[in-house]
Design a protein around this nucleic acid. Structure first.
Lengths: 225, 225, 225, 225
DNA sequence: CATGAATGAGTGTTCATTCAT
DNA sequence: AATGAATGAACACTCATTCAT
C-alpha cells in the first residue's frame, strides 16, 4: 500500500518499520486474562503477582507498568464487562413477541451459553470469595451486574404477569430463584467441580430448572409429562 | 487429691502436678470456633493464625499444641459436623406420614432454620472459596455433606413419585435445584450480603421457592393464588 | 538463695531457672545502637533493615517485633536523649559563681567532651541529611534539642552582659555562632572526616574558638598573646 | 529554509536530517541542574533517576545517553564548579590594598552573596550527607574546594599577621572557624531550614560573625559598641 | 538523538512455625 | 499446658538500567 508497486530500486534507505509495538496495547488485557484465571483457581491472596506476570508472558515489574498494584488489577478484572452479555438478554426481550415462558427459556439459555463460553463465568466464584475483603467492589459489582440482571428478569416476569401467563408471586424472590441455580452452577464448576467433585449435566440441569419453574409460574395447568 | 493420702515419703523428686488440665479438652473446639468465623470472614489465606489464637484467647504457640498446622486446623473446621443436622432431616422422613409436598416443605424449612442458627451455614462459602486449593477436602466434604443431603432429598422425591404426588423428572437435577437456592442464600449472606449488598428476606425467599417448586413438581394442578 | 548452702545431694529436680530472658528488654536499645551507627555511616535509605538486625545480632524479622517499621526505628533513634547532656550544661550555670567567660569556656568544653564520647554526636549529621525527608522529625528535634541548647547558651550571654563582662550584640546570632563550630565539627567528623579528609585537632580547634569568641565578646580588652 | 532553494533532485534516498541537535549540548547541564536540586532536596538514594529526567524534561533513557549511570551523574554534579567563585576571592586579595580586617570582611561577604545566589550553596549539605558512601568524591571535593578555600583564607590571615593587624593564633583552627559559620549556615538552610525550622537572618548572622571574629583577631583593642 | 517498554536485582515487611522456658 | 521470643521463607513493590525502534 504505502510502497509503489513499480519500485525499481528498493533503496537501502527505504526500510519499512511497521511491525512494531503491537504488544503494548494488548498487555493490559493479557494480564487481566492471566489474572482472572489465577484468581479464580487460587483466590486473590494465594495468587502471586509473579505468577500472573509469568502466565501473561512478562516480568513481574511489567505488571506494575499497567496496574497500580495487585488490588487495582483485581478490581480491573472484576469490573470488567459482564454487562454486554446481560444486555443481549435485554435486547431479546425488546424484540420478542411470543409467550413469556418461551421468552424466559430463551433468555436463561442464552445467558448460560454465553457465560459458559467465557472466563467471565468464573467471576461469581471469585466475587463470592473476596467480597468481604473488598466491600466496595462487592457493592460495585452488585450494582452493575447483579442488579442489572435482576432488573432484566423482572421485566420478563412483569410481562408474563401482565399477559396473564404467570402467577403473581413475590417478584423479588422469584427473580432470585430464577438466577440462583445458574449462579450456583457457575460457582460450583469453578470450585468443587474443578476439584473433581461430580457435576450435573448443565443442559439437563437447565432444562429441568426451566421445566420446574415455568410449571410453577404458569397460571394455566401445563400439559404434564 | 488424686494421690493417695497415705503417702509417707514426700521425696523432693515426687512432685505432684494436679492443678490444671483445666479446659484442656475445650481448647480444640474453642480454636475451631474462632477459626471458622475468621476463615469465613476473611478466607483461609487472609486469616492469620495469630488472629485465630487471639480470638480463642490463647497465644499463637498454643494453637500448635492442638493442631499440626494451619492447614490441619482448616481441615478440622471443614470436616466438622454438618452431618448431624442433615440427619435430622432423615429422621423427619422416616417418621413422616403425610403427603410428600408437606414433607419437602418441612424438611427444607428445618434445614434452613437449623443452619441459619449456626456458624455452620458459613461453611459452603468457605468451601467454595478454598475447594481448588484443597481438593481432597472438597471431595471429602462432597462425600459426607453434599452427597448425604442429596440422598436424603432424593428419597423424598422418590417417595413423592412413588405415591403419585410428584412428576417423574430428572431426579438428580431436581435435587440440585431444591438445594441450589438454599445454598446460594447461605453463600450470599456470607459474602456479598456481609459487604452491604441487599439481601432478600429469607422467609419469603424460602416460601416462594417452595411454592414454585412444589407447583412445578406436582402431578395434580394445585389451587393457584 | 533458694537452695540451702549445705546441700548434700543436689537433687535433679532442683533446677534453677533464672538466667532467662535477659535479652528482651535490651533488644530495643541494641537495635537502636546498631541503627544509629549505620544510619550515620550510610544514610537512612542506604541502610538495609537486614543490616541493622545483623549488627544487633538478630534476624530481620525480630526488628519488626520492636519497631513498627524502618521509619519508626529512625524516629526512635533521633528522638533519643540529647537532652540530658544539654541539661548538664544548665546545671553548670546554676551552680557557677565565677566570671562568664570562664563559665562559657567550661560549658562548651563540657558539651564537646560529653558528646564526643557518645554516638550521639553523630546525630547532627544524620539529622541534617534526612531533615527534608522527615520534616516533622526535624521540627521535633529542633524543638527539643537545638532550641534547648540555644536557650542555655542565651542565659550565659545574658549573664555576661548583665555583669558587664560581655558586649551587647545580636544575641540570637551570637548564640548561633557559639554553637556553629561545635556542630560543624561533629558533622565533619561523621562525614568528610570519616572518609579520610583531614580533620583539625578538636582541642586546638575548641581552644581557638573560645579564644577568639571570648575576645570578641569581651567588653574589656583582654591580655593578648 | 536552511536548504538551498535550487535543489532539483529530491531523491527519495537523499533525506537530509538537519533539524535538530537542537539543544544537544545543553542537555548535560540541564540534567545536572535538575539533579543537583533533587539530590539536595532528597538525598542521593531517595532521588529517582526518573525524577531527574522528568525535571530536565527528557525521558529516563535519555539520561543514560549523557551519563554512564546515576553515580556518574552524582559525581559530575559534585565535581562541578565551586572553584570559580572561590577564585573570585583570591583575585580580591591580590588587588586589595587596605587593612586585613576589611579584606576579610569583603571576602566572606562576597562568598556568601555569591554562593547564596546559586544552587551551589546546597552542595555542602549534599557532600556531607554522601561523603561516607563516596569517599573518593569526598577527598576530591576536599582537595579542590575546601582546601582551596582554606588556602585563600590562610593567605588573608598571614597577611594580617604580617602587617601586625591580627594576633598570631593557631592558623588552621582560625581558618576553620572563619568558614564554619558560613558552611553551617548553608547546610542548615538546605536541611532543617527547608523543613520549617527557624533560621537566623543571614545578614545579621554574618555581620555578627565578622564583628566577633575580627574583634577576636585584632591585635589592637577595637572601638567597642 | 530520543524514548517507550521491559526487566533483574533488590528491599521492606509479613507470617506460619519453632523452641526454650 | 502455655507462651514470649525468635526466625526462615515468602511476597508485593521499586528502581536503575537496557534495548529495539
Amino acid at each position: 500500500m504505502t510502497t509503489k508497486a513499480t519500485i525499481i530500486r528498493p533503496t537501502p534507505a527505504a526500510v519499512e518499520k511497521k511491525r512494531a509495538r503491537r504488544r503494548k496495547e494488548a498487555r493490559p488485557s493479557e494480564l487481566m486474562a492471566a489474572a482472572i484465571e489465577l484468581f479464580i483457581e487460587r483466590g486473590y491472596a494465594a495468587t502471586r503477582s509473579e505468577d500472573i506476570a509469568a502466565r501473561a508472558g512478562v516480568s513481574k515489574a511489567t505488571l506494575y507498568l499497567y496496574f497500580e498494584d495487585k488490588e487495582a488489577l483485581f478490581k480491573a478484572v472484576i469490573t470488567q464487562g459482564v454487562v454486554p452479555i446481560l444486555d443481549e438478554g435485554a435486547h431479546l426481550i425488546d424484540e420478542f413477541t411470543g409467550d413469556s415462558s418461551t421468552l424466559l427459556r430463551e433468555l436463561l439459555t442464552r445467558w448460560q451459553v454465553r457465560f459458559s463460553a467465557s472466563p467471565l463465568c468464573g467471576i461469581p466464584k471469585l466475587m463470592i470469595s473476596e467480597a468481604r475483603n473488598f466491600p466496595e467492589l462487592a457493592l460495585y459489582h452488585e450494582k452493575v451486574a447483579y442488579a442489572h440482571a435482576r432488573k432484566i428478569l423482572g421485566r420478563v416476569i412483569e410481562r408474563g404477569v401482565a399477559r396473564g401467563e404467570f402467577r403473581s408471586l413475590d417478584q423479588d424472590a422469584v427473580v432470585e430463584l430464577l438466577i440462583a441455580p445458574l449462579l450456583m452452577h457457575f460457582i460450583w464448576q469453578h470450585s468443587m467441580g474443578a476439584s473433581g467433585c461430580p457435576t450435573v449435566d448443565p443442559t439437563r440441569y437447565l432444562d429441568t430448572h426451566l421445566d420446574l419453574i415455568l410449571a410453577g409460574l404458569a397460571t394455566q395447568p401445563q400439559p404434564r409429562s
